[in-house]
Write a protein that binds this DNA or RNA. Structure first.
Lengths: 347, 347
DNA sequence: CGACGGGTTTAGATCGATCTAATGAGATCG
DNA sequence: CGATCTCATTAGATCGATCTAAACCCGTCG
């Protein structure tokens, strides 16, 4: 029923092969025939069948995007960056939202391999098999790990330097005179958690301060708020500043503080991580570490396309530098005349 | 290089046809051969090539998801719902983020047709050709419009009743005694804007109140804040309550009010729309209209799969009921002991 | 004993493109 | 004029699955 190269060939009075050459802008075709074929294509409303073509060429111009939580504004922004970069190159992505479930993740990856994606962008779910990425790679499918890095051997990676980011954060608080600095956030399970904790501990040590209380929680508002209770109950000294795993967590912490009658930015300093759009919106505005979600997404997509084009080139690790953004949640003066982000949100 | 049915057939000592039958769990195959084939599949690490199969069957088990702004938390949540429903059915989605650009949108849709998706979920970009959806449908590709409905003829649709939602909102304010109720938000360009405005106007009329000031702005924080200036400058009477197009817009309005020294929930009532996760987090907590983003996504995905299975069945319109959620941004008492949402946000 | 029948299996065509290797048509040249 | 060389075009095989229609096996029955 749908028109195919055969129909075009018939209508233009040429062979299928010639039509195929025209479709791919081959210089072999004479100008006059090219135009005749183009006309027929137009007239018959032909739609190129990439799936059929891929059967021969072994390339689908398609990648799989496996993300651990799309409803996290940080990952949504990253996804938009990926989508943008792929669009520019003429590629499309399958989306899979694992919601931190390794089982879902395995299922999704299997499905994408069936669809013969040319590569995978992977922000692995918590509890993923460390060998996951390298296993896929050795099966011949390029993988770029994004943000989270599995320790199952070398591979392409795009992310940020979480350790340095957290150091920047800690040092900002130290400069403001804080001596009791607590940490609230995820465990060492995934690489971003590990690296951040390392940065926190390292900065305190380096400045001769004792490592403060560390309260582990999943980075949600709810658990962030609960963490405050654990922080302020039955402890000899209360923290004067709280470093948070990410902004969402920091919002929870600020809520928890408010519920105890403590004013974030006055009674206790709070510092986030990620600089999601909401950070400048909340009151007090949240000081945080900017890591450039959109940019990370773009770089990751581009790296994957490079890897697909050159499968045997040596691995790349792109680590974008984090940046401290001072607002009002740590007291002191704001160093930045913060404009509201122009992010759209209509429907 | 990769193993195919041919290899399996060879290894199991049967024909390709038999292998194919086993792959599709056909009852025609004898138990003993089935097991022999399964074993060979396992041993050779075979990966089914859906693209090749689809060439014959004309079905890719793939849909296109065209969304107008993935970084809007509302759409991110909807996307998660879609992903979930598709996963349960064993389908995958291509993601396209149009960022409200009809040009990008056209490009994406063309690409998805090349990939031979079996259907399309479409939240059309602002400024889309009204005939877009019906044109795609008449080309034989099922489309379910989500949230936004183009007026280019009948078709499948999943969304909410924006008019009723906005009526609920207006009536809540009226019940609280407000007489000067302004409206801040998007124009009548897309159906959700049109319907909301209709609900607002209708509710006021019905209660014998004059229609208040209407300030149009794009639903961003920035423009929401600016709208407040237009609302309170050079007007004979100031509004005592503000109905907002959506929550993001309401956040902007509350910021704008704060900047004028007005306290939302005390001096001026503010009401949002969508009930995104941040609504319960902001202070004051935002009263709003819940429309169930995730649920809408799930229903839309399921409807599309039904439509693909039965292309000639008559169109369905699934309109989920909106629900008023009273928090503190309109003053008065909260009717709901609001727990923090358990949304995860780690990385 | 041959026809019949249900239960399995298979050869070969097919889907819509691409690729290879060969062919055809002119132009150029010794 | 025939050989050679471009430049343009094409027949037919091919990718990895499915589908059709036929064949096969084996027990049963008239």
């Amino acid at each position: 029923m749908p028109t195919t190269v055969k129909d075009i060939a018939l209508s233009a009075g040429v062979s299928r092969a010639t039509v195929s050459l025209v479709l791919r802008d081959s210089p072999l075709v004479a100008k006059s025939t090219r135009e005749r074929v183009r006309l027929a294509i137009e007239e018959l409303g032909y739609v190129y069948d990439r799936a059929a073509a891929n059967l021969r060429t072994r390339s689908t111009k398609t990648i799989g995007l496996v993300v651990c939580e799309i409803t996290n504004p940080f990952y949504a922004e990253m996804t938009a960056g990926i989508d943008d970069a792929l669009d520019q190159a003429g590629w499309v992505a399958f989306l899979a939202n694992t919601a931190e479930s390794p089982v879902r993740q395995d299922r999704f990856i299997a499905r994408m391999r069936e669809q013969r994606v040319d590569g995978l962008l992977l922000s692995p779910a918590e509890g993923s098999d460390p060998e996951l990425a390298s296993r896929i790679r050795s099966a011949g499918l390029p993988v770029v790990e994004v943000l989270r890095r599995l320790d199952g051997g070398p591979g392409d990676y795009v992310g940020t330097d979480f350790t340095t980011g957290m150091k920047l954060a800690a040092e900002h608080l130290i400069k403001l005179g804080h001596k009791q600095i607590a940490y609230v956030g995820a465990k060492r399970q995934m690489s971003p958690g590990r690296d951040r904790l390392a940065g926190y501990v390292d900065a305190l040590r380096r400045h001769g301060l004792p490592v403060g209380q560390i309260v582990h929680c999943r980075p949600t508002r709810e658990e962030g708020a609960q963490a405050v209770d654990r922080l302020f109950e039955g402890q000899p000294t209360d923290p004067t500043a709280i470093l948070c795993y990410n902004d969402v967590c920091a919002f929870g912490v600020m809520l928890g503080l408010a519920d105890r009658g403590l004013v974030p930015g006055e009674d206790v300093a709070v510092l986030g991580f990620d600089n999601i759009a909401e950070a400048g919106l909340y009151r007090p505005t949240l000081s945080t570490i900017e890591i450039g979600a959109r940019r990370i997404g773009e770089e990751a997509a581009r790296l994957l396309l490079r890897r697909i084009a050159a499968p045997k080139a040596s691995f790349e690790s792109i680590v974008l530098p984090p940046r401290l953004i001072v607002r009002t949640s740590c007291g002191g003066q704001t160093t930045e005349g913060e404009a509201l982000p122009p992010q759209s949100a209509g429907h």
